[in-house]
């Protein structure tokens, strides 16, 4: 693993992997969205509104996947002091937040015709909302730490603390939900029809690749920032 701590070796891998992930991810997710939006028949119960799930489900998965990436990278950084892991955590935060917000927005739009209201204090919706606030806090902390030159171990510690809390938040919200009102709607327990499942899986795979590509691109940008600053400093020293 320490092999990739070397930025040169990382870049030689990331330089061709980034466009590959971005292009394949874009093609797959665009294709899956077209498939889901225009080709799939309307659902028997949900009607046309089922189509938004092809965006909603991958967004929910990546919203949670984003924090998993932050937590794992933070752990690797704290334990092995792997410098690229800190960059990976920083790079995963913003796309994670974007997908969480997309998940909330699509859920809300889906809820309007289905539940008759923009927002329901449903367990899953609510824990995604809390997750979005955790992302905001993490990004604000990481930005402040970077601006003031504080050790990147600080946001990494918060990333781990958040990761411990996420399952508790999820459980507590579900418990709270059952306390106040029965679930307004439960998804049919029956297995999803392959007609829906296959485009859904393609969409999840496509958006995941896109997510990976964005994270790699952001890591390269962060690395380039560090290198540019180091070069400027070296030039300044030489000029003196």
């Amino acid at each position: 693993m320490h092999g990739f701590a070397n930025p040169k070796r990382f870049l030689s891998l990331a330089n061709w992997l980034t466009p590959l992930l971005l292009v394949v991810g874009l093609v797959l997710s665009a294709g899956a969205l077209y498939w889901g939006l225009f080709e799939v028949p309307p659902d028997r119960l949900m009607g046309e509104t089922v189509r938004i799930l092809f965006l909603h489900v991958p967004a929910a998965w990546l919203g949670m996947g984003g924090w998993t990436a932050i937590a794992l990278s933070s752990l690797v950084f704290l334990v092995w002091r792997h410098p690229l892991a800190a960059l990976a955590a920083r790079a995963a935060a913003l796309p994670g937040l974007v997908f969480t917000v997309v998940c909330l927005a699509t859920g809300s739009i889906w809820g309007r015709p289905t539940w008759g209201t923009w927002w329901v204090w449903d367990g899953r919706l609510t824990s995604m909302l809390v997750l979005a606030f955790l992302y905001f806090a993490y990004i604000a902390l990481a930005q402040a730490a970077e601006r003031e030159g504080v050790s990147p171990r600080i946001p990494a510690l918060f990333g781990l603390l958040g990761a411990i809390n996420i399952p508790i938040i999820n459980r507590s919200v579900v418990w709270w939900n059952s306390l106040h009102q029965p679930p307004s709607i439960t998804m049919g327990k029956s297995a999803i029809d392959p007609e829906f499942l296959i485009p859904l899986l393609v969409a999840v795979a496509g958006f995941s690749l896109l997510f990976g590509g964005v994270v790699l691109a952001r890591m390269r940008a962060l690395l380039a920032d560090v290198q540019a600053e180091a070069r400027l400093r070296r030039r300044a020293m030489e000029a003196v």
Binding site: V130, F133, L134, A137, A140, L141, I169, S172, W176
Partner: peptide, 15 residues
Amino acid sequence: LAGLMVIPLAVPILI
């Protein structure tokens, strides 16, 4: 920043 960080972490205690 502290306020923004405490609130989501304290949600389970509140619930």
